[in-house]
Every structure is written in structure tokens, then in C-alpha cells.
């Protein structure tokens, strides 16, 4: 039985949650532990903490945060953002993260995936891919020579830097290197609330055999169901629809369940 997971994503900087602080009844809406516990109660299946700390000097606070979350939150959680070396991954995992996600550094040096997997296993390595649909005008100006202009291109640095790499190819390569899971974000849809890029999801879901997490563009709970039913995703990630109190994870699961998707019911 396939059971789709619902994964809220929390942005953190210097050990504090910096977005999505609209829960009126929290004592400290920036406290990652309190927010994580809240999402656990609502029935979140996992959590992802995305570290947007600008300076690597402040990583120590992130590691301290991971310690605190691991000591008090008993659902799986992933830490991503700024994992550039095996040592970065090791520190997060030893602090209590269940998985780390790698993005830019893995594209620049794919051996990073192999190294982390060799020490900790595939199950703790999520490869995050930010992809943007190629437009035909790129063919005329600015396209990487020799790279086809259809499909999707991998972008780095939060969607700012094109790579010329085909996203479907990179996804299959990351899995071949040992990635245990893919987190796929459509940069075209991110922030638009128009729904996932279902064609992108399907293109990758059809060619990889590891779990696929859909991200980017969720505006309604129906979009979450679409990602699983039409996109073929195994899990759906969302940030703003949960953080700003528009919907609870439990509501998301009700809508997904009504669409015929098996989900773990919320605990309460």
C-alpha cells in the first residue's frame, strides 16, 4: 500500500523559523521545536528544515537547533541548505537529523552524494533539484551550446544560476549515485500558487525508482492531490499554505483522501 506523505517545509535562519509565523496560539512562533510539535500534532508525516542562514559562521546555531528538535520531536525530519561537504552532512546527522538534502554542492561535485551515502546509507540522502522549463527563446539567446531546448533545466543557488543540465538526466544520475529520495521543485511554479508542474513531476516519476517529493506552486489542497495522482509523487511538500494558517495538515489529508489517495490520518 502506497501511503502518500505530507511534508511541511520550514525555513530557518540562525536556528529560528523565519517564515510562516502566523499561528496565533504559539508562544514563540519562531521556535522550531514548537512549530515542529504543532505540525506533528496536525499529522505531518515528516518535516523539512531549510537552512537559509547566510553566514557559515552561524551554522553552529543550526546544529544546536537540530539537537533540540531531535530531542523533542518524534517524526522524521530532513535538514537542507548549505550542505556542501561530507562533514556538513555528518554534523547534521550526528546532531539527530534523519536525512540531509543536498542541492547546489551535489551538482557541482556529484561525488558528495556517493560520500554521504557510503557513510550513512541512501535512506538519509535527499537530492533536491530546482528545475525550470526551457523556453524556446533560450535557443536564440543564452542557451548553453549543445543542450537541447526542450524539457527542464537544473538551476542552482535558489533558482538564480542556470546550469545547462537537463533535470531528468540529473535526477537519474543522482539516483544512480545513491540518492535515496528526490525533492523536485519547479522554479516556474514556486510562489505562484498555480499548482505543481505536473509534467515535470511525471517526467521524473516515470524514470526513477526512489521516492519523489513534489514541491513548488501549491496554492490549494487540491494541488497536493494532483501531485500524487497526476504527477506520480510519493510525497508532497508545502510551506505557505500551512504556515499562514490557511489550511492544516489534517485538512490536506482529508482532501487527498477524498481524491482516493491513502494517507495516514491525523492523530487527533
Amino acid at each position: 500500500m502506497k501511503v502518500a506523505r505530507v511534508i511541511p517545509c520550514l525555513d530557518v535562519a540562525d536556528g529560528r523559523v523565519v517564515k510562516g509565523t502566523n499561528f496565533v496560539d504559539l508562544r514563540d512562533a519562531g521556535d522550531p521545536v514548537e512549530l515542529a510539535a504543532r505540525y506533528d500534532l496536525e499529522g505531518a508525516d515528516e518535516l523539512i528544515f531549510l537552512d537559509i542562514t547566510a553566514s557559515s559562521d552561524n551554522r553552529a546555531t543550526t546544529i544546536e537547533m537540530v539537537h533540540r528538535v531531535a530531542a523533542q520531536v518524534y517524526i522524521p525530519f530532513t535538514v537542507g541548505g548549505g550542505i556542501r561537504t561530507l562533514e556538513d552532512a555528518r554534523r547534521m546527522l550526528r546532531a539527530g537529523a534523519d536525512k540531509v538534502s543536498v542541492n547546489t554542492a551535489a551538482v557541482q561535485r556529484p561525488g558528495l552524494i556517493t560520500e554521504i551515502v557510503a557513510e550513512f546509507g541512501s535512506q538519509c540522502l535527499v537530492c533536491a533539484i530546482d528545475a525550470r522549463r526551457r523556453r524556446s527563446d533560450l535557443d536564440v539567446k543564452g542557451a548553453t551550446p549543445g543542450v537541447p531546448t526542450d524539457g527542464w533545466e537544473v538551476y542552482l543557488h535558489g533558482g538564480r544560476t542556470p546550469t545547462g543540465i537537463n533535470a531528468v538526466h540529473w535526477a537519474t544520475e543522482a539516483v544512480r549515485l545513491g540518492a535515496g529520495e528526490l525533492l523536485l521543485t519547479s522554479m516556474d511554479r514556486d510562489g505562484t500558487r498555480e499548482g505543481f508542474d505536473l509534467d515535470l513531476l511525471r517526467s521524473i516519476a516515470d524514470v526513477v525508482n526512489v521516492p519523489l517529493i513534489a514541491s513548488g506552486g501549491v496554492g490549494t489542497l487540491g494541488h497536493l492531490a494532483d501531485g500524487v495522482v497526476e504527477g506520480g509523487a510519493d510525497a508532497v511538500l508545502a510551506a505557505s499554505i500551512f504556515h499562514f494558517g490557511e489550511h492544516t495538515v489534517a485538512e490536506a489529508k482529508n482532501v487527498m483522501g477524498a481524491a482516493g489517495i491513502t494517507v495516514r490520518p491525523a492523530a487527533v
Binding site: M1, Q123, G180, P211, A235
Partner: peptide, 12 residues
């Protein structure tokens, strides 16, 4: 169709 290995999810 649709079931991946590993199983990485909640189950009953």
C-alpha cells in the same frame, strides 16, 4: 505500479 523500494513511509 507506484510502489518504490525502499518502502519509506508510514504504514498500518
Amino acid at each position: 505500479a507506484g510502489l518504490k523500494i525502499p518502502q519509506m513511509q508510514w504504514n498500518r
